[in-house]
Computed example of a mutant assay.
Amino acid sequence: MRHAFRTLAVTIALAAALPAAAGTYRPPTRADDGWPVADAGTLGWNTAKLATLEDKVADGSYKKITSVLVADHGRLVYEHYFNGGSPELLNDVRSASKSLTAMLVGAAIQRGAIPNVEAPVYTFFPDIHIEHPDPRRAAITLEDLLTMSSILECDDENPFSSGNEERMYVSERWLDFALNLPIRGYAPWVSRPKDSPYGRTFSYCTAGSFIAGAAVERATKKPLAAFAHEALEEPLGISKVKWNVSSEGIGMGGGGTRYRTRDLAKLGRLVADGGRWNGKAVLPSGWVHAMLTPHAQARDDADYGYLWWQFRFPIHGVETKVWAMSGNGGNYVFVLPERELVAVITSQAYNQGYAHPQSQAIFRDIVLGAIP
């Protein structure tokens, strides 16, 4: 049986990796992984548009892309690997892992390990010494961390920020570092929460996502990777994955998790279908709805749910809101629930300025440009 599975996996890898002739399209290959496949052409997709992706990667228009996969109504309709990518490659999706942490918080609430999203953060860590106690810390909730809007002074986009993630990575104890961050202030050009959309001031903070993952560990009394396997991966048939840990051994809920492309698509499909996989509930539909509801304005062109981004893209000339897991290098899982669309783009353009615009262009121009 294992030999047959390995043979099938090799067949998929070879079929997906073989170069296609310019302007051609071929449907994904079916495997024993829970994914149905379909011919995009029979579903009304512009397959000539989809096929231009291979040409643009080949001529260097798109760089360092390793895979692109599209699922339509729970069926794979496009799958291709590039630049050393393969069906078995564990893609380092960096901060796209944060969206997984949000799912795990929901799973922990479902199991009663965490009371609700308003749970005070510091109550999970009574053993951590706080060097500068402040009564305002007691009011910080998990929701504040999930929406990147806590009062901790933490901004990964500001190298001067006390909570910049690079400072955390070089510390001996990440959790002590994160929980001891000072209370933030508001420069004259920064809107205070009461003046901000949704009543929250957004500040991108990996340390906050790390705290949220650590809270799940404390609440469930399991390593984050073990709880993720129990709550998400095993129900989805995901067997190959790598989770990172901090220097003191706490699961890294802020980034660096590695998944195969088809498994990333399963996570997207789970969310697109309201917490169900193949008709079976894995996450509460109410949590998925809350997760995919704007709670903060991240930028002028993007809102933020619970560790999920909401972007706006044109579909047939109509501006449409699309949710996404997003990580350094241009790694994305795009989800459009109302059309039951999932698109995965993996890329190794880490720390390159073109990475995110490039992956968003692939989604906008190729995937949405070809949608029925």
Score class of each variant (00 low, 15 high):
A4G: 06
F5C: 03
V10S: 13
L14G: 11
A16C: 11
A22S: 12
Y25E: 07
R26Y: 01
R26C: 00
T29F: 03
D32N: 12
W35V: 02
D39I: 02
G44Q: 07
N46E: 10
L50C: 12
L50Y: 05
A51H: 04
E54W: 07
K64Y: 12
I65Q: 01
T66I: 03
L76C: 06
Y78C: 07
F82N: 07
G84E: 11
L90D: 12
N91I: 00
D92E: 14
D92N: 15
V93D: 06
S95L: 10
S97N: 03
T101Y: 10
L104R: 06
Q110C: 00
R111W: 05
P115S: 10
A119T: 14
P120Y: 06
F124I: 04
P126I: 06
H129L: 10
D134K: 02
D134T: 01
R137P: 09
C154P: 08
F160N: 14
S162W: 08
G163Y: 07
R173V: 07
N180S: 12
I183T: 12
Y186G: 06
Y186Q: 08
P188L: 05
P188M: 03
P193W: 05
S196L: 08
T201N: 11
T201R: 04
G208A: 13
G213W: 01
G213D: 00
A215S: 10
V216T: 05
E217K: 02
R218P: 00
A219N: 00
L224W: 07
L224F: 10
H229D: 14
E230I: 02
L236R: 13
W243G: 03
S246Q: 07
S247G: 09
G251L: 08
G268S: 08
A272Y: 03
D273V: 05
W277K: 09
N278E: 15
W287F: 11
V288E: 04
L292T: 13
G305V: 02
Y306V: 00
L307H: 11
W309Q: 04
F313D: 09
F313W: 08
F313Y: 14
I315K: 06
V318T: 14
E319G: 05
T320D: 09
K321Y: 09
K321I: 00
K321C: 08
S326D: 14
N331Q: 15
V333C: 13
V333W: 05
L336C: 09
L336S: 06
L341A: 06
V344N: 08
A349V: 05
N351S: 14
N351L: 12
Q358Y: 01
I362V: 12
F363Q: 02
R364Q: 13
G369A: 06
G369N: 08
I371N: 01
